[in-house]
Design a protein around this nucleic acid. Structure first.
Length: 443
DNA sequence: TCTGGGGTCCTAGGACCC
DNA sequence: TCTGGGGTCCTAGGACCC
């Protein structure tokens, strides 16, 4: 078997409990202990170490619900340190990229590779070497799954992490297995654990007698199309080894950009909402320029807390069309603040605000109207884009809060951020701030 | 007291066009 | 006796992902 040269194979490489592993690189005291990383505002659990999983901590659990027993059991909780995770991610991804001409970076901790024309023994050897190298160079443990389709590679990755036959090596190559063994492993995977199948579909599938990935592989794809849709049909075909999902090497241009945050406390007054909306407009505009794109429409929205039924609920949103496509922070801020005035109602306690940019287009070759609108007078366009370029450069070089708009508010030498989120358990920016580097001392 | 943020794809139905 | 056919665009809603 292992001497046969394979046709195209997909590998899925991902970091185990990635955020927790990033934290452990620089804080050895976290090793061997239950550790969770919390979402923004220290709200929900978004990453768990094996030890935390063993305590029964579920993914997405609101932290306040488990905090007391968890901490009593010696558990540690940390705020999300995205600066650190993004930096370690890019180091990990560049190592992974050395192992194939074709790589898709699928998320902050997951990457697909495509391999063609290798013997299975060579595939396995490369996978082991990759795993060893990422472990040694970045300090992140990874799991690797190999299969004939992306969906099978995902399933293999799951087995590499959870199944006793593969957990020790951390590598699972489903394509190298005899059909009967492959089917035996697929029989042990619940439909809801297959990539692309969520809780809703899993429940409906169970009602129709589909109780494993193997069952789904064996039903007629046309039947799946009839009872569900083309998305699930593709998943069923992929489980049969028919590749329906291609490797996406270059991410397609974004279709929308969102910036939003829950507040650290509920807010009723207009001024802090203006500051928050201005900050979201500025962040969204910065992302837009990073994409080399412009927008022709922007939505502003507010939310009252969705979980407290005794409070009056209100979640308005308004979309503002722009006469000229733009990526100018000042123009987008002005439009967003106009939108805020349309939807703001006093008397509610707001929990969240955000700005979405829709209808994006590449920055070059845009259609201008004959008539400049108030915020982006055509004669000023080129000096405005030069201003934005300078602002982005300064903020990249000197730090995020070096230049900002007055509408974001001022508090000392920073934006006001009265609405700032809670991040009480934040670890240092170990790899991106000189002042926060780890110092090793000889004893 | 305390429940994240940022995305994608597909479908159905209505408006509108030639 | 009896009202075409084919197409696009937009929106809302539903499902999923990490």
């Amino acid at each position: 078997m292992s001497s046969i040269v394979s046709d195209r194979q997909f590998a899925l490489i991902d970091g185990n409990a990635f955020y927790v592993s990033c934290e452990r690189v620089f804080a050895p005291r976290l090793r061997g202990r239950p550790v969770v990383v919390l979402s923004n505002n220290d709200g929900c659990v978004v990453a768990r170490s094996d030890e935390a999983k063993a305590l029964g901590i579920g993914m997405g659990t609101p932290y306040f619900k488990i905090r007391q027993p968890y901490e009593r059991a010696g558990g540690i909780a940390l705020s999300s340190n995205y600066t650190l995770y993004a930096d370690l991610s890019s180091r990990m991804m560049s190592i992974i990229g050395q192992y194939s001409e074709r790589q898709e970076i699928y998320s902050i901790d997951e990457s697909f590779l495509e391999w063609q024309g290798f013997r299975h023994a060579e595939l396995d050897r490369m996978a082991f070497e990759l795993r060893r190298q990422v472990g040694q160079w970045v300090g992140i443990p990874v799991g690797i799954g190999i299969g004939a389709t992306k969906t099978l590679a995902k399933a293999a990755n799951r087995l590499a992490k959870h199944h006793p036959d593969f957990r020790r090596s951390g590598v699972c190559n489903l394509s190298a297995l005899a059909p009967a063994r492959l089917e035996a492993y697929l029989a042990g995977i619940a439909p809801g654990d297959v990539w692309g199948i969520g809780a809703r579909w899993a429940a409906r599938l169970a009602g129709l007698g589909i109780r494993s990935a193997l069952d789904l592989r064996q039903v007629d794809p046309a039947w799946v199309r009839l009872h569900f849709n083309v998305v699930l049909e593709r998943i069923a075909r992929e489980l049969r080894g028919v590749a329906c999902l291609a490797l996406d090497e270059a991410p397609p241009p974004k279709q929308q950009i969102i910036s939003s945050r829950s507040f650290g406390r509920l807010i009723t007054a207009l001024e802090p909402l203006r500051q928050a909306v201005s900050t979201h407009a500025a962040r969204a505009a910065e992302k837009l320029r990073h994409e080399a794109a412009q927008t022709r429409a922007l939505t502003v929205f507010l939310h009252t807390p969705p979980f407290n039924v005794s409070e009056p609920q209100y979640h308005p949103g308004v979309t503002i069309r722009l006469a000229n496509p733009t990526s100018d922070t000042l123009a987008l801020t002005a439009a967003a603040l106009r939108g805020l005035l349309c939807i703001y109602q006093p008397g509610y306690r707001y929990q969240k605000a955000g700005v979405m940019l829709l209808d994006l287009a590449p920055a070059r070759g845009e259609q201008l109207t004959l008539f400049p609108d108030d915020e982006t007078g055509i004669p000023e366009r080129s000096s405005r884009s030069a201003l934005m370029a300078v602002m982005d450069r300064i903020n990249r070089r000197m730090g995020r809060h070096t230049l900002w708009t007055a509408a974001q508010g001022v508090s000392g030498s920073r934006p006001a951020e009265d609405w700032r989120m809670n991040r009480g358990k934040l670890t240092p920016a170990y790899t991106t701030q000189w002042a926060e580097l780890v110092v090793a001392r000889a004893i």
